[in-house]
Simulated assay, not measured.
Amino acid sequence: MTAQTSDEQRPALSGPFGYGDRVQLTGPKGRLNTITLVPGGEFHSHRGMIRHEELIGLPDGSVVRNTHDEEYLALRPLLADFVMSMPRGAAIVYPKDAAQILSLADIFPGALVVEAGVGSGALSLHLLRAVGTDGELRSFERREEFAEIARANVAAFAGAAPANWSVTVGDLQEALPATCEAGTVDRIVLDMLAPWECVGAAADALKPGGVILCYVATVTQLSRVAEELRRSGCFTHPQANETMVRGWHVEGLAVRPDHRMVAHTGFLITARRLAPGAVLPERKRRASKSEYNDEDVAAWTPDVLDGPAGEAAEDSREWTPESIGQWSKSDKALRKKVRDARRLAAERGADEA
């Protein structure tokens, strides 16, 4: 069940600080410390302390001093700041990719959006903000631990579980038809290990013209999902890209790129649902070295095609997080992240129900 988020429950996004607000304190050396204001709380560093009560009532962007007279800048974290500091059960979708997802998938206010898997809830928060109160987000997750962390993180940010958001634990292929009527979903976003397994279910759920977007980590996954989208005959030609963000150091005449950058995090591949019975026209282009046939596809992704290639699939390597280089947390670590997320939600007075 989901709980209604009232104005009284929702943490303020602007205005004077109050108990339950998340506050980002930036110290003299630029180090960020994110805290939740609670009655009687204190923020300690090795060079002094700030009582939470000293921040209550101050406007956003205030400067406060600790007991050693060091200055700290106090600001509410932006959504991007929040998702980067919240408890994580699974790797999150970085803000740079979340922004691209909202644009490429054309997430609009009032849309019915399906998301799988929910991970730690980072993308869910961006999608909920984009669909607005008139839209709806239906999230699906295979692992109960990840779903619990996501519920707590979203509740911590919003003040309660949004009324227009649901999280279903289960396999998307089985749960989606039982949750969404065929041809009713505006957008589907798949952030999962093997999104090609869900292309058929997604095609049934999407409206004609609806968008499917898949977020994958490796080129092998990218190729596999692209060929499945083509093979299904239900979608337009897929388009793929990645986003790299490089910051710049700008101080006086010292203007240069930062030494570090957020480079590859994942690939985004999108396609649009064709009308039932429509056949996508073949692209007319001159022959080139990029031409390929079924044998080429089978050599790269042997489980895409039927026949001899399908036989090779039985011996192919199983798709696991480890096989594509993704690090996964142990059950013990996940239980700790669940406790951390619930504690954060409790500090903000959030209702996870």
Rank of each mutant, 00 (worst) to 15 (best):
G183H: 04
A202G: 15
L79S: 14
A226V: 14
C234W: 08
V113D: 09
G30T: 05
R246K: 12
L13W: 03
H249S: 10
A152E: 08
E311W: 11
S166H: 10
R143Y: 15
E291I: 02
A278D: 15
G89V: 04
P308S: 12
R348Y: 00
R260A: 07
E53F: 00
M86Q: 11
A287G: 12
H46Y: 06
G349M: 00
G277M: 11
A299E: 10
T236E: 12
M86K: 04
L137S: 05
C180H: 02
C234V: 02
S288P: 06
P276L: 13
P11L: 06
F267N: 01
A163H: 11
R142G: 11
A350G: 02
L344M: 09
T218F: 07
V154W: 10
G110T: 06
R143P: 04
F108Q: 14
P28T: 01
G18C: 00
S330F: 04
G117P: 13
T236Q: 09
W196V: 09
A178F: 06
L334T: 01
I107K: 06
P302V: 04
Q9S: 13
R187G: 08
V304E: 07
T179Q: 08
S330E: 04
C180G: 04
G209N: 04
C198F: 12
A217P: 05
E54P: 00
L213A: 14
D186H: 12
D60A: 03
C198D: 14
G18I: 00
G233C: 10
D7A: 12
D303I: 02
F17H: 01
P257D: 04
A203C: 05
G349H: 01
H249A: 06
N293E: 14
G20Y: 00
D97A: 03
F108A: 13
K336D: 08
Q239R: 15
D204A: 14
T179Y: 06
G48N: 05
T184N: 04
K329C: 00
G132K: 10
T243K: 09
M1H: 13
R317M: 05
P11A: 04
A203T: 07
S290N: 13
R151G: 05
R273P: 07
L268P: 03
A240M: 11
A178H: 09
I35A: 04
R342I: 02
L79H: 13
E314S: 08
M84S: 12
P276E: 14
G247M: 08
P109F: 11
S45Q: 12
P276C: 14
E148I: 06
